[in-house]
Amino acid sequence: MLRNINKGDMTAGLLIAAVGLFFFLGAFEHEIGTARRMGPGYLPLAVGMITVFLGLVISINSLRQADILPRLDSRPLISVMSAIIAFGLSFEGLGLVPAAMMAVIISSLGDTDVRPLPTAILSVVVAFGCWLIFTVALNLPFPAFRFM
């Protein structure tokens, strides 16, 4: 195991290089064209190549100084992402109020101090407020409830 490298930058560089490589290879599915008449693949190819190069520069640079890989703060990450997914899944089927309430409750779980009653009140307040702003005041076609 290499000890004196910046593991964060090493990971970052390799990640960037992989993304660049993906677009670089993807560019060949399209016509590349020439400098005179560039095809749809021309710029993705060029920028993909530059990106791979930059990723490698970052990785090589990481060998110069030691640093640890940063840790994920998984609780807020998972709860916030699940909240948005729940909103996306329920908004068109169930309506604005259930989607907003679910998003509030699930995202609240990201904080370690979460307590049931304040969260329940908050979810009602936010859902009602959004309904007032978007459905009533702005007249957007978002019914409070929708039944499938």
Binding site: F87, G88, A103, V104, I105, G110, V126, C130, F142
Partner: peptide, 11 residues
């Protein structure tokens, strides 16, 4: 605050 922000972003 943040749950409300998330709902506003989604909408």
């Amino acid at each position: 605050l943040y749950p409300a922000i998330i709902v506003l972003i989604c909408i």
